[in-house]
Design a binder for these strands. Structure first.
Lengths: 349, 349
DNA sequence: ATCATTTGTGCAATCGATTGCAAGAAAAAG
DNA sequence: CTTTTTCTTGCAATCGATTGCACAAATGAT
């Protein structure tokens, strides 16, 4: 790989001049510019980014922290963040923490030592001490898919309240009045928001969402199965159910299929996330799509914007984007007769 | 962030001594070592990796090139490569090319300019001119999930022939004799290998795999639907079908469900890859699991090994790992009566 | 006590870029 | 024809590490 020095020698000028001719920072005479450009072309010279980074303190590298790579959500973050970063001429270093605080800390520390230009976190808890590490440096940070209590850290999220509202409106309009919900962990704000949007809308529309019709899951497939089994076995009365993510919804459908309960014939089911399975499976899943691409693009924009400026005035940035309802086959008019949970009990006797 | 100089000042020695005390390259007196270590601890000093990279020419960064991030296969590559890299103290820069040669070239060039220690390709074609770019530098390269004709480029693949064999053996043992196959693109060696393993074993076991029972797909969901529809509509006679990846298998199941053909009652179906859906769906999919974790670990090991040494003797490295058959619900004994394709035709009249 | 060897440390160059400062050449002003 | 201003260009320092070489002190050999 040729270096600046090589180009300078070939063009018969100093390295300073070559640098300036390339970057156009300070005017260079027409004649030498052409000579330099020719030399650059002839040697196939490309500035070395490591050296450049050392000097100008910008690496054009972003870091992305994900807790894992099994959930399609995080895959989407990786995918769209990489896309947005590449569009801006940045590269992306990814690290999955596997919910291991040590790994997370190691990764963040590496990023700092690499003079990274910014870090995007997907999912961090309010108590993560990693944020303290970051406070010591001036590295711009943004959080996607979560909001933190600390308001000086920018975040980009979907309007979670709205997502619950969309689902409720859809199901109400189909004629449902008795609802159930399998939520994500309720110690996390966005999940409470989802539930609030759902409940408020259900109640405002004349429906019911009894406490015994709510099950707190953990976003995993198995948790959906467990949740619906629990609801059915405790005789919860509902004709429509919302699982706060698609993996749990798939689990629900799975168990309902095992128990011979028809979807959407007896129970309508909706999810959230619009994972691949939601449209590949039969029946295809009614769900809410998160605007992942926009979220990631915004996150990258925020980071790059901050990285550029020296001023440290952290205004409070909270971007909130609209979800979109996608109606498919698992939701329909409610059945005429009794509730599935009760019918099953009767049959069992 | 404190620098070496700061530590040196605090410890009252030169930067050279600090560097040597930290890296242990040249012995330092016990006394100064302790003083330096204390200074390092007190200041929370961590060597800057950019500066270090510039000097020692190793960045402890690996690049991973994937064509896209929709297929779960590539997600697995990202996941396991990151895992293996992290275990060795390396970070990973990922780039998806979206099958756009320009993007691919831009990405590779960036990696080169970043003095990356090695690049892992998943899926490249024999004609990719990117390999030529890489020939100009000495950056170690390894290819996963493909083999190239050029034997000087190391590759790590599953034993694809074996995967076809495993599926065929399983289906034969269930009693099937008439087989069909939906393949991946047959201009790619590994797909021909899969087919060969399947065909050889079927024939050796007294089964048939007629030419009209083979459909060349493109590894996507829709292609599975199209393939099975084509086979059924052209009256292909078979009781067991192997789709060379799970997405296509899911497409197959989808269409069979639409047409009311029972799986595994009338047709047994197997896939390959063991994607999440394969175990979440109902009926769950019999499939072959690729040893992705091992593949990625090997790839990283090969790269790091090469990166260390100066000698350029590219011995021919081709690692081949064993697949594993996972039997689930979509495969069973063949039906007694006629073939599904024929029965449907009769019914239609 | 003298010379050879080992051990520990610092100076200064280096990796490959960018940039403040100064100097020479050219152009404009007096 | 000076003097001032403007344009170009190069020198050398810098970013933060590593490392060859030299030198001084300590150790060992004679």
């Amino acid at each position: 790989m040729p270096s600046l020095k090589d180009v300078a020698r070939l063009a018969g000028v100093s390295t300073s001049t070559v640098s300036r001719a390339i970057n156009g920072t300070i005017p260079v005479s027409e004649e030498t510019r052409l000579r330099v450009e020719k030399a650059v072309r002839d040697m196939g010279y490309k500035p070395n980014l490591v050296a450049q980074s050392l000097r100008i303190k910008s690496t054009r590298l972003l870091g992305l922290v994900v807790p894992e790579m099994q959930h399609e959500t995080f895959i989407s973050f990786i995918r769209f963040t990489e896309e947005a970063a590449e569009a801006k001429g940045y590269n992306l270093i990814i690290g999955s923490t596997n919910s291991d605080p040590d790994r997370e800390e190691r990764f963040i520390e590496n990023l700092i030592r690499r003079n990274i230009d910014g870090i995007i976190f997907s999912r961090v808890s309010d108590k993560s001490h990693v944020l303290k590490i970051l406070d010591r440096t001036k590295i711009p940070v943004v959080i996607i898919d979560r909001t933190l209590e600390r308001e000086d850290i920018p975040s980009v999220v979907m309007d979670n309240y709205e997502s619950g509202k969309l689902v409720a409106e859809h199901l109400l309009s189909l004629g449902h009045r008795a609802f159930a919900c399998i939520t994500g962990p309720l110690d996390i704000a966005i999940n409470r928001d989802r539930l609030a949007g759902f409940r408020d809308t259900v109640l405002a529309g004349g429906g019911t969402l009894e406490d015994k019709c709510i099950y707190e899951g953990n976003f995993k497939f198995e948790s959906g199965k467990k949740g619906i089994a629990y609801l059915l076995d405790t005789g919860a009365r509902f004709t429509a159910l919302w699982a706060q993510n698609d993996y749990m919804a798939v689990g629900v459908l799975n168990l309902l299929s095992d128990r011979g309960i028809a979807v959407p014939g007896e129970i309508s089911v909706a999810g959230l996330d619009n994972i691949q399975q939601s449209w590949m499976m039969r029946p295809s899943l009614t769900t809410v799509a998160q605007p992942f691409r926009e979220m990631c693009t915004h996150a990258v924009d925020i980071i790059i914007d901050r990285a550029g400026r020296e001023d440290d005035n952290r205004e409070k940035i909270r971007v909130m984007l609209k979800p979109e309802l996608i109606v498919r086959e698992t939701t329909a008019r409610p059945p005429e007769g009794s509730f599935a949970a009760e019918r099953k009990e009767v049959e069992r006797k």
